[in-house]
Amino acid sequence: MPSDQRPPAIFLMGPTASGKTALACALRAHFPLDLISVDSALVYRGMDIGTAKPDAQTLARHPHALVDIRDPAQPYSAADFRADAQIAMQASTDAGRVPLLVGGTGLYFRALQRGLSNLPEADAAVRARLAAEAATIGWAELHRRLAQLDPVAAARIRPNDQQRLQRALEVIELTGRPLSELQSGGAGEPLPWRVLKLALLPGDRSVLHQRIATRFDAMLSDGLCEEVAALRARGDLHPDLPAIRAVGYRQTWEYLDGRYGLPELRERGIYATRQLAKRQITWLRSELDARVFDPERPGLEAAAQAALRLFLGSA
């Protein structure tokens, strides 16, 4: 059998607060790697604290492509990411280096590797009407409607996930076909890189939960509320934007609206982050071809280095 002649690329995946960035930077010190962020929140400028964005010193020493490339008023899609990531990957390969894509947005990893379904473009009129309906009858009622029209999609979309729920109903209206049916067909050209997948999956979920709580407390201490207040003060941002719906930002926006106090902000922010981590872990467990590492076990960096050496064929 002929060997795979595609250039190499590495996916470093894991739930939030699992130590992906630290490991990526450590690996870059030993291998000719270019880091590419796979994070739906890190793309936004001015959203640094609540996204746990690497600080300026880290980014100067270990540059990450696809960080700070959008204003929060500009939505960023999986299709946008796929196009941008392939440009960054090709630049890395052309320079004789290896792209390492690091992050926790499973949809982006999947879109990059498997391509995107042939879905219609967003329709502003349909979306506005669905939003108006939701304001009248509630998103839970729209979720019940989706369950009748596309039970497969409804099973994986939470009733309070307004963005995905709206999109699923929009697709049905525009195409007359269920979103799950269109997505099952797959689409797009195969990724022209051979990929090593590394997944950080904590064996003890309680340790990850503690890390999430500690990190959210640090965000509050570092000025998360002030950061969101500055975003609100712009006047052109609102809670329905994908950037503001990001975990931590939505809860802080509601706190600044006066809907609850600081203790409840902390509780809600930590809970939402834990739920995000749970969804990320569930997705990662479906990536059966990934090399799994427990980020809390000693020797993580050495084990990851060994996997890269074997994959890249270096000594």
Rank of each mutant, 00 (worst) to 15 (best):
I10F: 06
L12S: 08
P15M: 13
A17R: 14
K20T: 01
L23F: 10
A29G: 01
F31Y: 12
D39T: 07
Y44D: 01
M47F: 03
D48G: 05
G50E: 05
A52P: 02
K53N: 08
T58C: 12
V67T: 07
V67H: 05
P72D: 08
L101G: 02
L101T: 01
V102S: 11
G106L: 02
L112F: 02
L116M: 07
R127T: 11
R129W: 14
I137G: 00
W139S: 13
D150H: 12
P159Q: 04
Q162S: 09
R164C: 09
L169K: 02
I172K: 11
L174H: 05
A187S: 14
P192V: 11
P192M: 02
L196S: 05
L196P: 03
D204S: 00
H209Y: 13
A213Y: 06
A213N: 08
A213T: 14
A213Q: 12
C225L: 13
E227K: 05
A229I: 07
A230Y: 03
L231E: 02
R232F: 06
D240M: 12
P242T: 11
R245M: 12
Y249C: 13
W253L: 01
Y255M: 14
L256I: 00
D257T: 06
G258N: 01
R259Q: 15
L262W: 09
L265S: 06
L265Q: 03
R268E: 06
I281M: 11
L284H: 06
A290R: 06
P298S: 09
A306E: 15
A306S: 14
